[in-house]
């Protein structure tokens, strides 16, 4: 177990330019995952994952489809619990606190670990404005001006404000696909989470919209810790500071092969499997 941790956590602590700029210090990871197994009933979907995510960084999770990367992402804010019979073994620490402790309320956890999904999913019955404040309204009443402020700030951060500021009352579904996804990002950050999980956020978008999302991720890094699942290796290379490579074992359980600074994973991986994958070899 110790060797496992050293293998995957140690590279994360290697000082990189980003870590220095972040200034929070690499010693206290934002999220720390230890020996995580995820089960659906009797089927083990993910096994033995140990890794750490630095604060205010972008961590990419890559790997072939079916390797459990989305499942893994969802365990970070316990969204996987929505599936019947899903359970985990192991620990996920958020700022050192175990999110699987019985005292933790998954509903509250998700308020601090937000999520953006594969397909843009604005609420079709709500206006752009109401979509952004949907999470805020759950917490209780806020004054009109407070809400206005949150809407503008969130939409600005999501690089959408200029495009929608004159039509905030129109339905969220009236926007283009790329705009909808930025609206969903605005919605996720409106509640001011600490971590934003992104599950292939650009896979349903065209190249131009994808580029905007990638630029946005780079900007969001200054305020949020981001974990992004992507099947697009170039994207992982462009947007992330660190990369985790997952693959599927013979028992069909996904596991973490290698975790480290993105540059190293792509240029000088330590594992043969990683090298095969990033260089496009398979079989």
């Amino acid at each position: 177990m110790t060797t496992d941790e050293q293998r995957s956590v140690a590279p994360a602590q290697a000082p990189t330019a980003e870590a220095a700029a972040g200034g929070t210090g690499a010693a206290s990871p934002k999220i720390e995952v230890r020996d995580l197994d995820v089960y659906y009933g009797a089927f083990r979907a993910v096994k033995g994952v140990t890794m750490a995510v630095r604060p205010r960084s972008v961590t990419a999770v890559i790997g072939p489809s079916g390797c459990g990367k989305s499942t893994f992402l969802r365990t970070l804010n316990r969204m996987h619990e929505l599936a019947p019979k899903a359970r985990v073994e192991g620990t996920v620490l958020l700022d050192g606190a175990n999110v699987y402790d019985p005292a933790v309320d998954p509903v509250r956890l998700r308020r601090y670990v937000g999520m953006v999904f594969q397909r843009p999913n604005p609420f079709p019955t709500m206006s752009i404005y109401d979509n952004v404040v949907a999470g805020i309204r759950l917490a209780g009443r806020s004054s009109r001006s407070e809400l206005d402020g949150i809407v503008e700030r969130s939409l600005r951060r999501a690089a959408l404000w200029n495009e929608v500021k004159d039509k905030l009352r129109e339905p969220g579904t009236s926007l283009s696909g790329g705009q909808q996804q930025r609206l969903c990002i605005a919605r996720a950050i409106a509640v001011d989470p600490e971590v934003v999980l992104m599950d292939e956020p650009a896979s349903a978008l065209d190249p131009v919209a994808t580029l905007r999302i990638e630029e946005l991720i780079a900007e969001l890094r200054t305020n949020y810790t981001i974990v992004i699942v992507t099947h697009n290796m170039q994207q992982a290379g462009r947007v992330s500071d660190e990369t985790a490579f997952f693959t599927m074992d013979e028992d069909r359980a996904g596991y973490l092969v290698e975790f480290g600074p993105t540059r190293e994973i792509f240029t000088n991986p330590r594992e043969q499997l990683t090298e095969d994958y990033v260089s496009g070899r398979f079989g």
């Binding site: 990871p29 958020l94 606190a97 005292a103 309320d105």
Partner: peptide, 23 residues
Amino acid sequence: MTAAAVPIPDHLRRASGRERRAV
């Protein structure tokens, strides 16, 4: 390596049972 998990901060704790939303 962090030794043990730190105590659960209040903002993540389950509501006391009287919080309106949970009720």
